[in-house]
């Protein structure tokens, strides 16, 4: 971490003489959130379609989905900086922007605290903000520490359910959802699988999740809350029977962005089964 910080400061001092970028295109919703967190949105001239938070992003020109953005669309906005998630692409398009002399800063999208801090420092550095992000990172750490200090009973089982318009999928290990949920003190019942995989509805009942966690877009894609709760296999889980169903904003649960403490807080606000009588609450 120290090495990283010194690297960032070195870069900052290198850029100090150049003018700070004023026309920025962001490829990746989590990075857009960070730009807003720094209150630097007045520099944004374009974002990708995954940038849906905060609502004000709706009025910024869109250059396509960050995995298949339009090179010329980006160029037409005349950016002096492109902030890209390492998931943005195709790689040829990133290479093309660079070969045309555009400054492209690619930041890791990994769902770890280290990577999140890197993202915050990276955005601050690339935008040459007066606020170098250290305060934000310190604040973030403090908040997370506070949340971690909350008395957690034995980790309750949780199932993270998604849908992107097709059959419901479950989040396994090495996903952003898994990382967020674990930080909030849950045990992911699908930790045995890697990545997002179609859900085996029969297997779900066996795993007996005490919590069902999903996102607003997934609920919409599956046709509403009632449909989700009625999914075969899901309907008979302790989570649904006791009404422990949590619905989070998509970017909040998946973005692993500056709102991570908020995501964790929302997840933790659910009553713990240890102290749970029959007063189950749904969302």
């Amino acid at each position: 971490m120290k090495i990283f910080l010194t690297a960032v400061f070195m870069l900052l001092s290198l850029w100090a003489h150049a003018a700070a970028p004023q026309r920025v295109v962001v490829l990746g919703g989590a990075l857009t959130e960070i730009v807003y967190a720094f209150d630097a949105q007045n520099r944004l001239v374009g974002v990708d379609q995954s940038s849906v938070y905060p609502a004000a992003t709706a009025s910024i020109p869109k250059v396509g989905y960050y995995r298949s953005f339009s090179v010329e669309g980006v160029l037409s906005l005349r950016p002096d900086l492109i902030l890209a998630s390492d998931q943005a692409g195709p790689p040829e398009a990133i290479a093309q922007l660079r070969s045309l002399g555009k400054r492209v800063v690619v930041l890791s999208s990994a769902a770890t605290l280290d990577a999140l801090e890197q993202r915050i420092y990276g955005v601050a550095g690339a935008l040459q903000l007066r606020d170098d992000g250290r305060a934000k990172v310190a604040n973030l750490r403090a908040q997370l520490k506070l949340l971690a200090n909350k008395p957690a009973a034995a980790r309750p089982n949780a199932l993270v359910l998604f849908s992107r318009g097709g059959a419901p999928e479950g989040a396994g290990r090495e996903t952003a959802a898994d990382a967020t949920v674990r930080l909030a003190g849950f045990h992911n019942v699908l930790a045995g699988q890697k990545g997002y995989k179609p859900l085996s509805l029969e297997g779900i009942a066996q795993l007996k999740p005490q919590y069902l966690i999903t996102t607003t877009m997934s609920v919409a894609a599956l046709g509403g809350m009632e449909k989700v709760l009625a999914l075969p296999g899901v309907a008979s889980t302790p989570a649904v029977r006791q009404g422990n169903v949590l619905v989070l904003d998509d970017l909040l649960l998946l973005g692993f962005g500056p709102r991570l403490p908020e995501a964790i807080a929302q997840l933790q606000r659910a009553p713990r089964p240890a102290r749970l009588s029959q007063s189950g609450r749904g969302q």
Partner: peptide, 15 residues
């Protein structure tokens, strides 16, 4: 990720 890029590749990979 490579698969996604490849799927969406179309003509944008023209270099």
């Amino acid at each position: 990720r490579t698969l996604t890029f490849w799927n969406m590749g179309s003509l944008a990979g023209a270099r």
